[in-house]
Design a protein around this nucleic acid. Structure first.
Length: 801
DNA sequence: CTACAACCAGTTTTT
DNA sequence: CTGGTTGTAG
């Protein structure tokens, strides 16, 4: 066994070079000695691992050991010598998933899998392919160069804005964002401007197709591609050049695809082309977890698999290792309402467990308050239903991000540590994008988008007029904007103030560029110098807004991240595709995230708030996509419930503040679809009408959708009773009973210097000074002067955190 | 060019 | 209610 491991380790060094090497282990040798990594797989998993040749569809329900089967399959292919690492194409959607797969294959084989060069996201693999054939992408006169840059969404939109302006269109009526969405949709479906069906190009009032073509030409001129292009260009490349396609088909002897239910048309075509010849393709997915239809995913791809690949083996992974039978039964009962499923029944060996809990609240604040109290109780171990629980084991999964706010406010004020997962990403922050633009410009002085972003950041006196002059000059002489600036300076096109500073700026970029090409200059030091000499760091140091220090920290972190790369180019390439960052927070925290962000994760205790019609299922999904939309929402509910290992709690509120207005709503129709046998209805503290009554209706065992039928029949929303309740809520601007969060007109005398207090926005802090009803408080983010009425004392005993 | 007022839109998100 | 963007005045 040791020898075998050593052999695989050596094999990994082979990379994907065209040297095929000799085939390592014979199959007979393997048969003689069964592979230990297969031990412990259940029969279905084992079938999924051992059915190596031909098309395989692995239908893997939530928590059924999908990743294990997938990674073991890769290990098996390698161990049997069916393929060398460079001959396996393994595709995921996210970098995170790719990383996990890589790690787990490495663990199975007892070594790093550096030799799996084609394990990655659709996008990263497409980049590698495109770089080798860039010249083949383009129209008659323009084509890509292998050094093409990858634009992010921000760049895309700015480019489109320019095009819309160039056509003298009203930006109000045709926002660049919308055009970007339109074009993105086309690219998802692999529709090049030339292939747009007649009806489609007329979108955007007839301008759609034209702007799309203009945009694509502009990208070519910039030697750039956007994310959608990565896939689309690959597909058109394969279609137009059979020899190229052939070479990639020959290289990838085995193809594995994760989350197949989320593939869009372009990805589907990409896969089908590559798999066409040998058909050794194994797609893993769960039709019940397809939740990205709104961004182009086609559930149809997975539903159609057997038709697309005749003779396909379908393996169902149905044994669940994550959740209690109660949780599984609830989830299964709910998803059963969907039509057109491939059909799976999750089961588990485990026994017992708590029923899924359901509770209705008066309003969203009461909901947040109650969940906060529950979490404190679980964490303190004061609840019989479940033992003492780490905050890390608790998650709140919401449908829409605006729901998070109620929880953040509440948790801040009671001092409950939480983390929001999936917020604005590190590389999307303005300061990071600015810094990156500097680096981009230094590496490629012709990067006009980067130039535009930072030419006047920090302020260099370059306004709209100055920029126009530069653009005119650049266009007239066929120069980049940077060179155009130099020319404009020579011609005296810039005003005195701007001229002096821009002269300095262009000279500095020239110096940095030279240094970037100089091996003797450390790229980390160069990066620091760029930020200092450009005045960018100073700009934030001079900024007095409270988040300026955070931004400076982020910049430091960015420079630190550079250390892991050989040079600036390498770093930029990496960041263009891998836009995430782990913020390793060790402290115990409750996780708050959207249901979408929760896919693939699991938590012992899960709260699912906001189950109200209109919010969840979302009105927009139903309006725009009808039954399809509703079914996707239901799958989202399914994903939510199946995240829970031991306890799931669903809740809804009768009233919710939305855009500053109080709105009343009915409980979600999904509530009525929950199987009553596996659900326990809780009674909230204090009895009111509204949401609470609905929970009671459920408890009474009303038939599916009874509530809604009743509501519709009785025209509830127009009934006097409903109106009365609404107006009551509006007047009160809050719940009937509430634990005082903000103490009205609290006399300052109640506080003394040194007391710990909490504020809804700023979190906890210490009182440093008192003047009548005004306190000076030191928060983590700095000193604030605040009216005493807006803070609440933090009791040492009451709050166990 | 900056500062402030007015206006408007407002799910879900990865690459 | 918010935050982001646009338009206008200084």
């Amino acid at each position: 066994m040791i020898r075998r491991r050593a052999y695989v380790g050596g094999m990994e060094l082979l990379d994907d070079s065209d040297d095929m090497g000799d085939v390592p282990l014979s199959r007979r040798a393997m048969a003689a000695r069964p592979a230990p990594y297969l031990d412990g797989l259940n029969p279905a998993q084992r079938a999924a691992v051992e059915t190596l040749d031909g098309p395989v569809l692995m239908l893997a329900g939530a928590g059924t050991g999908k990743t294990r089967a997938l990674t073991t399959r890769i290990a098996h292919l390698l161990m049997l010598g069916q393929a060398r690492p460079g001959q396996i194409l393994a595709v995921t959607f996210t970098n995170k998933a790719a990383r996990e797969m890589r790690d787990r294959v490495a663990r199975l084989l007892g070594d790093t899998v550096e030799g799996m060069p084609w394990l990655g996201t659709f996008h990263s693999i497409s980049v590698k392919i495109l770089r080798r054939h860039a010249e083949l992408i383009g129209n008659g006169d323009l084509h890509l160069k292998p050094s093409f840059t990858i634009l992010d969404t921000d760049d895309q939109i700015r480019l489109m804005k320019q095009l819309i302006q160039a056509e003298n269109l009203d930006e109000k009526r045709w926002p660049a964002r919308q055009l970007a969405g339109l074009i993105d949709g086309w690219k998802n479906r692999c529709l090049t401007p030339a292939r747009l069906p007649k009806g489609e190009g007329t979108a955007f009032d007839g301008w759609g197709g034209r702007l799309y073509a203009a945009y694509q030409n502009r990208l070519l001129a910039l030697n750039a591609v956007d994310f959608g292009d990565l896939l689309m260009h690959c597909v058109t490349l394969f279609q137009a050049h059979p020899d190229v396609l052939r070479s990639w088909q020959d290289r990838f002897r085995y193809i594995l695809v994760d989350e197949y239910q989320d593939t869009n048309v372009a990805q589907y075509l990409w896969l089908r082309l590559l798999a066409q010849s040998h058909r050794n393709i194994c797609c893993v997915g769960d039709d019940d977890q397809s939740i990205y239809g709104w961004r182009g995913a086609e559930v149809g791809n997975i539903l159609r698999f057997e038709h697309d690949f005749p003779g396909a083996q379908v393996v169902r992974l149905e044994q669940n290792y994550r959740s209690t039978p109660q949780i599984l039964a609830t989830a299964s009962g709910l998803i059963a309402a969907n039509q057109g499923r491939l059909g799976k029944t999750l089961w588990t060996d485990a026994e017992g467990g708590e029923k899924v809990r359901l509770i209705g609240h008066w309003d969203s604040e009461a909901e947040a308050r109650w969940i906060g109290e529950e979490i404190e109780a679980f964490h303190g171990g004061h609840r019989a239903v479940i033992g003492r629980t780490s905050l890390n084991d608790i998650a709140i999964l919401v449908r829409a991000s605006h729901q998070m706010r109620a929880f953040e406010d509440r948790f801040m004020s009671i001092g409950l540590p939480y983390r929001v997962i999936g917020g604005p990403r590190f590389y999307e922050r303005a300061e990071i994008r600015d810094a990156m633009a500097y680096f981009r410009l230094v590496v490629s002085p012709a990067d006009d988008l980067a130039f535009e972003r930072i030419a006047n950041t920090p302020k260099r006196g370059l306004g709209e007029k100055g920029l126009k002059a530069i653009q005119a000059m650049a266009r007239a002489r066929g120069l980049s904007l940077l060179d155009g600036t130099v020319a404009a300076l020579t011609a005296g096109d810039l005003s005195g103030k701007a001229a002096a500073q821009m002269r300095q700026f262009t000279a500095a970029v020239g110096r940095w560029h030279a240094d970037a090409l100089d091996d003797r200059v450390s790229h980390v030091e160069l990066a620091e110098r760029i930020l200092d000499e450009s005045g960018y760091t100073a700009m934030w140091q001079a900024d007095k807004t409270p988040d300026a220090p955070v931004r400076l920290d982020n910049l430091k972190e960015l420079v630190k991240a550079l250390e892991e790369f050989e040079n600036l180019q390498g770093f930029l390439e990496h960041v263009a595709l891998v836009m995430d960052r782990d913020d390793g927070d060790a402290a115990e925290q409750v996780s708050i995230m959207t249901l979408h962000a929760a896919k693939g994760l699991e938590f012992p205790v899960v709260f699912l708030p906001g189950w109200e019609d209109g919010l969840f299922p979302s009105q927009r999904a139903m309006d725009e996509s009808g039954t399809k939309g509703l079914e996707e929402e239901r799958r989202l509910a399914y994903v939510g419930i199946t995240r829970a290992e031991r306890l799931a709690t669903i809740s809804f509120a009768g009233n919710r503040r939305l855009y500053g207005q109080w709105q009343s709503s009915m409980p979600s129709r999904f509530v009525d679809e929950l199987p009553a046998d596996h659900v326990e209805v809780l009674t909230p503290p204090g009895l009111y009408g509204g949401g609470y009554g609905a929970a009671m209706a459920f408890a009474a065992g009303g038939p599916v959708n009874a509530l809604h039928e009743r509501a519709a029949k009785a025209d509830v929303y127009n009934s006097p009773g409903w109106k009365r309740m609404q107006s009551r809520t509006t007047e009160r601007k809050g719940p009937v009973h509430r634990t005082p969060v903000i103490i009205d007109a609290e006399p300052a005398a109640k506080f003394t210097v040194g007391d710990r207090v909490s504020h809804a926005k700023f979190g906890q802090g210490t009182i440093m000074g008192i003047a009548e009803d005004t306190l000076t408080v030191r928060f983590d983010t700095g000193f604030k002067t605040i009216k005493a009425a807006y803070v609440q004392p933090v009791g040492g005993d009451d709050v166990p955190f």
